[in-house]
């Protein structure tokens, strides 16, 4: 087992310039800074339209020190395939290829290309930062927007459908590594990316990424809210490594423990205002059933 990274031995190499175009309190700016440290300098990035396109700066100024190919919305994983193909043709296979997309670019418009690349077994890391709506275009619902959430396209009664479980969909392709992470636990993310780098074939990491502007909270609470999502048991940190599923980090510590009620998470954000008491109680029941199964399976 690899040793856990701490703030003391985290790489000091900064690959994302400060003063970029991310909003105050942006969860993506946390995970992107830490994620690029983990990926390292010998990496080519592939990025579809998303908040990350904006974060990286407007031509001819860039906020990132890695080479990056901006691509069309539906093409991310196919473009990563093309970079890999060229690197292979040129004998430059030691260079890492990482795709970094938002939840819309992953779960909705990008899922076909991603599924194709996973099925073909392309040797790349696909990272989805999930801020649970189309934030860059002004908070429209996406496939990963949770049930009940108010967005600009579910304006009054909230989204009626459930959140799409993208990590499970990707895991169903039988790839060797799927993991979830959270912007509130950047070192856990760092270690997962470092582990993914050691494996062959497609690797998928899904990061829960709080968004102050889209979720309706004070920018200083980004990490607190990210932690609450995990501590309430709503959002789980786990790895599926060679088909073995296991809880990790802060979620693993919750096994057999009392979890924070989901209501405390919902109360921190404006986007959950349409949730009725009945809906909240239903969600709490679902979370309790899920965790009862975790406790039985993974508890001592």
């Amino acid at each position: 087992m690899t040793e856990k990274t701490t703030i003391l031995n985290l790489s000091e190499d900064e690959l994302v310039h400060p003063g970029n175009r991310a909003c105050a309190g942006c969860g993506l700016s946390i995970v992107y800074r830490i994620g690029l440290k983990a990926l390292g300098r010998d990496t080519i990035l592939v990025v579809p339209p998303s908040c990350l396109t904006v974060l990286q700066g407007l031509y001819p100024i860039a906020a990132t020190q890695l080479p990056c190919l901006n691509v069309t919305f539906a093409s991310t994983a196919a473009a990563a395939t093309g970079v890999l193909g060229a690197l292979k043709a040129q004998g430059r296979e030691s260079t890492l290829v990482a795709a970094w997309a938002g939840d819309g670019g992953t779960s909705d418009i990008g899922i076909q290309a991603l599924s194709g690349a996973c099925e073909r077994g392309e040797n790349f890391i696909f990272i989805c930062y999930d801020n649970e709506a189309y934030m860059n275009t002004g908070v429209q619902r996406s496939g990963t927007t949770p049930q009940g959430v108010i967005t600009t396209t579910t304006p009054f009664s909230g989204k009626s459908q459930k959140k799409k479980d993208v990590p499970s969909i990707i895991a169903a392709h039988g790839i060797d590594y799927v993991a979830t992470a959270s912007a509130a636990y950047p070192l856990d993310l760092y270690d997962k990316i470092v582990k993914a780098k050691t494996m062959n074939g497609p690797k998928y990491i899904h990061i829960h990424t709080p968004c102050p502007a889209g979720w309706g909270f004070n920018p200083r609470f980004t990490v607190k809210i990210g932690k609450l999502a995990v501590e309430t048991g709503l959002y789980d940190l786990y790895e599926i490594e060679n088909n073995k599923w296991r809880l990790t980090g802060a979620s693993k510590k919750l096994i057999g423990k009392k979890r924070t009620p989901v209501n405390e998470y919902f109360n921190t954000q404006n986007r959950f205002k349409a949730l009725s008491d009945e809906q909240i109680s239903d969600i709490q029941k679902e979370v309790d059933i899920k965790w009862q199964s975790y406790d039985e399976t993974y508890g001592n």
Binding site: V46, V71, S75, A79, A80, T81, G82, A86, Q90, E119
Partner: peptide
């Protein structure tokens, strides 16, 4: 898995110098 991806692959491969 699609023509859209076919050209995406070519775009990225060409951008990578092949």
């Amino acid at each position: 898995e699609s023509e859209h991806s076919a050209l995406s692959v070519c775009i990225a491969a060409s951008s990578t110098g092949s």
